[in-house]
C-alpha cells in the first residue's frame, strides 16, 4: 500500500468538473449509506438514554473483564501473526523456490474459511471428543473454553493480514538492495533491519493494525471456543451478544460503540502513520 504523496498534477487526461463532483458525491453517498450508517445506528442506540447507562455498562465488572480479555488476546495474537507474516513475506518475496504460489495460497486460506469452521477445527483438535482431548484432560490442561483456545481461534482468523499486506510490496521492491547489502558483508539481521524494514514499515504497520482490529472484533470463531462464562471467557463481542440477549440494548450498543471506537482509533492511527509515511518518503531523496 504505497502512497506517493504530493498534489495530483494537472492533467490533459482529466474528467470534466461535473463528472468529478458527481463521482465524489456518489462515492460519499454510497459509502456513507453502506458503511457509516450502521455505525451511526450503533451510536444512536447506545445514547438513547444519555451517557449515564453507557458509562455504567462499560464499567460493569463483567464488561471490564471482557475488555481486558479482548486486549490480552489481541496482545498475544497480533505479535504471533506479525512474526509469521514477516517470515512468510521474506521467504516468498526474496527467494525463488518451487511451491511458492501454493504457500501463498495456503496463507490466504483462512480468509475464505468460515469463522464457524475456524472455531470448530480447534474443538475437533483439542475438545474432549477431539484428537488430543483425552490426553489433555488427563493432564488437566484446558485449551478450548479457556484463553488458549480463544487465542488460537483469533490467530487463525487474523492469520493472513500481515503477510498479505507485505508480500506484494516486497515482491515489487525486488531483492537488489538486500543483495547489495549482503555482498557488502552485512549480516542477515542487519540487512533486514537497515535495508528491508525501512521500506516496508508503513505497510507492516498497516497490516498489524488491521490484524489488531480484526482480532478485537472477531465473533464467530471465538463464539465456538469460548464457553461463554461471564467475566471469564467472554470477549467484548461475546459480551455484546450476552447483553443483547438480556434485553440490555443500551448496554450492548454501548460496549459495541466502545469496540467500534477502539477499531476507529486503530484505523485513525493507520491513516496517520500512512500520512507521516508519505512525508518521510517525500523527504527522502529519490532512489
Amino acid at each position: 500500500m504505497r502512497r506517493p504523496g504530493g498534489e495530483p498534477r494537472v492533467e490533459v487526461a482529466a474528467e470534466a468538473p461535473w463528472v468529478r463532483r458527481l463521482a465524489i458525491l456518489l462515492a460519499v453517498l454510497v459509502l456513507g449509506l453502506l458503511l457509516l450508517l450502521p455505525l451511526l445506528a450503533v451510536a444512536t442506540e447506545a445514547l438513547r438514554r444519555g451517557w449515564t447507562p453507557v458509562v455504567a455498562a462499560i464499567t460493569d465488572p463483567d464488561a471490564l473483564a471482557a475488555i481486558r480479555l479482548t486486549l490480552l488476546i489481541a496482545a498475544i495474537s497480533v505479535p504471533v501473526n506479525t512474526l509469521g507474516g514477516l517470515a512468510a513475506a521474506w521467504c516468498i518475496a526474496k527467494f525463488d523456490f518451487p511451491g511458492r504460489a501454493l504457500l501463498l495460497a495456503l496463507i490466504e486460506l483462512p480468509f475464505s474459511v468460515s469463522p464457524v469452521i475456524s472455531g470448530l477445527v480447534w474443538v475437533l483438535l483439542f475438545g474432549a471428543q477431539g484428537w488430543l482431548g483425552p490426553w489433555l484432560q488427563e493432564r488437566d490442561i484446558q485449551i478450548v473454553f479457556a484463553l488458549p483456545g480463544l487465542v488460537l481461534a483469533t490467530i487463525f482468523v487474523t492469520f493472513p493480514f500481515v503477510a498479505r499486506t507485505l508480500v506484494p510490496l516486497m515482491q515489487e521492491q525486488g531483492r537488489s538492495a538486500e543483495e547489495a547489502a549482503a555482498t557488502l558483508g552485512a549480516s542477515g539481521w542487519q540487512t533486514f533491519r537497515r535495508v528491508t524494514l525501512p521500506d516496508i514499515r508503513w505497510a507492516l504497520l498497516s497490516g498489524v493494525l488491521l490484524c489488531n482490529a480484526r482480532a478485537m472484533g472477531e465473533f464467530g470463531a471465538v463464539s465456538v471456543v469460548s464457553g461463554h462464562i461471564r467475566g471469564e471467557t467472554n470477549t467484548m463481542p461475546l459480551h455484546i451478544e450476552i447483553l443483547y440477549n438480556e434485553y440490555q440494548f443500551v448496554g450492548a450498543f454501548a460496549v459495541a460503540g466502545l469496540l467500534a471506537l477502539l477499531a476507529l482509533v486503530t484505523l485513525a492511527a493507520k491513516a496517520l502513520l500512512e500520512r507521516s509515511g508519505d512525508l518521510a518518503r517525500l523527504r527522502r531523496p529519490p532512489a
Binding site: I24, L31, L36, L210, R214, P237, A260, A263
Partner: peptide
C-alpha cells in the same frame, strides 16, 4: 484521483467493515 475535504475520513471509513465486530455489524444492519 481526487482531492477533496474529508478524503482521509472517507479513506478510513473503507476499512470499517474489517474493524467493526461482525456481530455488531449484523445487529446494526
Amino acid at each position: 484521483r481526487y482531492r477533496f475535504p474529508g478524503r482521509r475520513l472517507l479513506d478510513g471509513m473503507v476499512d470499517l467493515p474489517f474493524a467493526l465486530p461482525t456481530a455488531v455489524a449484523g445487529l446494526a444492519l
